[in-house]
Simulated assay, not measured.
Amino acid sequence: MRKLLLCGLTMVLALGCSDGPAEQGDAAEGFALLQRDATTLEATYRAGGASVRALVVETSRDVVEVTYDFGETVIGFHIDYNQGVGNFSPSGNPLDAAQAQLLTPLLEGISKVIPEEDGGQRTRVENAAMRQTSFMQIVPVGELLTPYQFVSERGWTHISCSCGNQYIGSGYYRQAGMGCGCNGGDNGCKGRCGQGCGVTSTPRCVGTTAYTQDCAKHDYGLGSFAAASDDYSFASNNCSCSGVGTCY
């Protein structure tokens, strides 16, 4: 009798152990906000077997560490707003297409829990989360990335908010400015240091409302993502967001 009871107990424990890891491994797809307070924001996005974990931490006053962990690919930023200096630190494998596709819904998920820049006060962590996730959308796919430093003192040049044919630097003139129709034959909001907008889409303010020459050159394939780093991270907002449900 005692032997039977022991066998039964062993079977229950074995079943419990076999079921546990399977349930823990089946993480729900979509966006999940794991932590948000004055100094930390942590979120994940999962889809199709791929996932990204974003962790943004203010380690000291106005110094923020931002990490995007895809598993075998990790991309980090060290942003020192006191010194106006940032460091881009990739490691592991190049970013692939499946991983890159996670960034737009990750940014949209983060934007839903963070106040709009024109309508509320963002913490340093929230601001960094929006700006660096916006920047991650233009990081090259399939290329071996190397570390580099970017400095706000090197400056940026704002362009006009009004859509039109404008000088975007380096001898180039292109259509740029606010509006989904300001697309140059592609996505709208050309020159924006943040998520663009499609002709038929009506996005809310995501990322920044800074419009600069380096961001415009990148939008037209005339400048590198690295050259736009300081614009994405530090450029002041020179254009006002017109809010939810409108093209801007």
Rank of each mutant, 00 (worst) to 15 (best):
S89I: 14
N183G: 14
Q83G: 10
Y220K: 02
L41A: 05
A22W: 09
N238A: 05
L144T: 12
R2I: 07
A54E: 12
G245F: 02
Y68V: 01
L106N: 03
T200H: 12
T73L: 07
R131H: 07
Y172P: 01
E23A: 14
K217F: 00
I75Y: 02
T202H: 10
L102Q: 09
T157W: 05
T39K: 15
C241L: 04
E42Y: 02
T208C: 06
A50E: 13
T209K: 04
W156M: 07
T123P: 10
G142H: 06
D231K: 00
S152F: 00
T10V: 13
Q121S: 10
G16T: 04
M11I: 15
G184R: 01
R122H: 11
S160M: 02
L95D: 04
A216H: 08
D96F: 11
Y220E: 01
P21W: 15
T10A: 15
E108A: 11
V66D: 03
E58D: 03
D118R: 12
G196Y: 05
S242W: 02
K190M: 05
Q24R: 15
V199F: 11
Y81N: 08
S152H: 08
L102R: 08
C241P: 08
Y45P: 06
S242C: 10
S134K: 01
M1Y: 09
G243F: 08
F225W: 15
Q101T: 11
S91K: 13
P21E: 10
G164A: 10
G181Q: 13
Q213V: 05
A54N: 07
F88N: 00
G84V: 05
R154K: 15
Y173G: 03
A100W: 05
G84R: 12
Q132C: 11
G120E: 09
T44S: 11
T202W: 09
R53Q: 12
